[in-house]
């Protein structure tokens, strides 16, 4: 029997939608803005429950970011909703000046991130957003791994004072973390302990990493699997402790190798405890149309790529 089972298949964007509704119930200052993607972002329940706190921004993301920044001045806690591509690259300067530099309490909710957006293709499959956002001083960057973690993260960031980038995705994906979990910003989640190698994964790649670990354990390896949902601030202690124990690290993420989680981990290790590391990430390439699982396979993000990366790092 497999070590990890999932309860159901559910999209992380629904985790956001359900978390937003809950955050709205808990705090009347929570407001939501959406750039003509209310259904895609699963914001309809919030909109129906709190019509006076929902702002339709239209296809005008730059303005949406600025309006959100302005709303914080009056004590509001705005969540902006659009695809990750339009939540970052398209509005980078607005986020940089009006939100990050100005220290505004805006929550940038970014759906359809990465290759798993699927058939829409590379124009929408942003793989650079984590890098863009983590470079901004003071910006918290979170990329949860399943429906439940996304829901918990959404509720948690509403209670956190400061700008946050929350990245999630489109496809139905295994749900394997507990309902009503406590989400601690900046705190790694260790799924299993091991002694030979550490897999550090974020987002959709966490499930793939758990499946990879099962396969590797069947071959006799002792694998530690750490879920980094908060890429910034990074849980330095958890990573350094694990790397010191296993001496081998593989990172896995649905993002460019340049600027992603792997970069953050490598920087940390290089400065504190140089450790052999292999990356599972997109290697300086745009995506293309296809099914999520096909894209994960072709661009080297799935279970087999993680297994291969572990085997490479074990030889170093």
């Amino acid at each position: 029997m497999a070590k990890y089972e999932y309860t159901e298949m559910k999209d992380t964007r629904s985790g956001f939608g359900d978390g937003l509704l809950e955050a709205g119930k808990r705090n009347k200052n929570v407001v939501a803005l959406c750039a003509d993607l209310t259904g895609s972002l699963k914001m309809n329940d919030f909109k129906d429950a709190f019509p006076d706190r929902f702002i339709q921004a239209g296809i005008a993301e730059a303005n949406m970011m600025g309006v959100a920044a302005g709303l914080t001045i009056g004590g509001k806690i705005p969540f902006t909703g659009t695809f990750a591509n339009f939540s970052t690259g398209r509005v980078y300067d607005q986020i940089r000046q009006s939100i990050a530099y100005s220290g505004k309490n805006v929550k940038i909710a970014a759906s359809h991130a990465g290759l798993t957006l699927g058939e829409d293709g590379a124009t929408h499959q942003i793989l650079e957003d984590i890098g863009l956002m983590k470079m901004l001083p003071g910006m918290v960057v979170i990329n949860p791994c399943d429906y439940e973690q996304t829901k918990a993260a959404t509720i948690a960031i509403a209670e956190f004072d400061g700008p946050v980038y929350l990245r999630f995705g489109r496809p139905k994906w295994p749900v394997f973390t507990p309902a009503n979990q406590k989400f601690e910003i900046g705190k790694a989640v260790t799924f299993q302990e091991g002694n030979n190698v550490t897999i550090i994964a974020t987002g959709h790649c966490v499930w793939e990493s758990l499946k990879a670990a099962e396969e590797l354990e069947a071959e006799g390896l002792s694998v530690e699997v750490i879920n980094i949902h908060t890429i910034k601030p990074l849980d330095n202690d958890a990573i350094l402790k694990s790397a010191a124990k296993t001496g081998r690290v593989v990172t896995a993420e649905e993002h460019q190798m340049n600027g992603g989680l792997g970069d953050s981990v490598a920087q940390l290790l290089a400065r504190n405890n140089p450790t052999p590391i292999e990356y599972v990430a997109v290697d300086d390439s745009f995506g293309e149309s296809g099914k999520p699982e096909e894209l994960f396979e072709k661009y080297g993000l799935g279970k087999s790529s993680i297994v291969a990366a572990v085997k490479r790092v074990m030889k170093r």
């Binding site: 920044a69 302005g70 709303l71 001045i73 009006s98």
Partner: peptide
């Protein structure tokens, strides 16, 4: 960028 921010602040006032 200022008009967007001013609009947000004005909407918050109304709320």
């Amino acid at each position: 960028q200022g008009m967007s921010a001013a609009i947000g602040a004005a909407m918050a006032k109304k709320m």
